[in-house]
Amino acid sequence: MKVLMKGNEALAEAAIRAGCRLFFGYPITPQNEIPEYLARRMPEVGGTFLQAESEVAAINMVYGAAGTGQRVMTSSSGPGISLKQEGISFLAGAELPCVIVNMMRGGPGLGSIQASQSDYFQATKGGGHGDYRIIVLAPGSVQELADMTVWAFELAEKYTTPVMILGDGTMGQMMEPVDLDTIPIKTGHSEFPWATTGCKDRPKRIINSLYLDATMLERHNQKLQRKYRLISEELPRAEAYHTDDAELVLVAFGTAARIARGAVDQGRANGLRLGLVRPITLWPFPGEFLLAATTGARKLLVVEMNTGQMVEDVRLVVEGRIPVHFHGRCGGMLPTVKDILAQIEEMGV
């Protein structure tokens, strides 16, 4: 049954359904409905909600809880996600599963609380110290926020890695119809051969990311890279819209992709052959999908709510074969269909 829910609340309820019983967070707009919702819901399902003293503490609580092999989540926005980078690096280094939500707001610094996509680089290029990646998912609707939360927990456990849901303030605050009944309810948690649960009837286990011996650390890094290659082969996901005959293909994710889709519809109504590729996984970036969907295109236009971040990955993928243009709004301003079409007119299809 469909209900009308805020993105943040749908995500939080989906986490409960996915079997997450541990949440550690710290207040920051525009994601506050996630901790507020879970503060109510966790006690009802025998779970733990804890407001930590800082984002630094929250992510380290996640690190501790993740070590026990249970599903655990934290959520924040730009300034808080920056503070969490230390812990995210530790989680990646120690290969622990967890879900991190970033409802992006404008930056840098304290920035604004309005929606933005300016944390793309931070999310997809590592963010913290060291040679690591985390899986980054870009939902485009309240329904996807819920579905991707479940998917995020599954991916985190499958690849023993942190997974980030990269939403934005608009996505978190908006209400849309969502059907949560399709999400199977998971209770209990899986057994993992690495989890620290007390060493009864088995040798002790250590959760660690310290390798003082350079040869050991290199070996550990190579192991991580093999995992990242596997993820890059198996996971990339994107959606194509009217790309078959498109002369100009827009590339956008999340909220920007919704607006770009509107531009495609309106442009087509005016006789322009426009299409859209929407990356759903931002890391791994769906490069092969993008190439396949743009074989007939003469131009690409990347639309983002920042000053040009994903556009760099698009340029890496097309390697100069197709001109790549950029349309961006930032600081909490959203692109509009009108402005996108004006730029397309200027560029010429």
Binding site: A57, Q70, F90, C199
Partner: peptide, 23 residues
């Protein structure tokens, strides 16, 4: 000779909180 987890600088009480709340 027990299960052990290595924490970031200063964060051990937060990590311990996570473990204790989970178990």
């Amino acid at each position: 000779n027990t299960d052990m987890q290595q924490a970031a600088h200063g964060r051990a009480p937060a990590v311990a909180t996570g473990i204790k709340r989970a178990l």
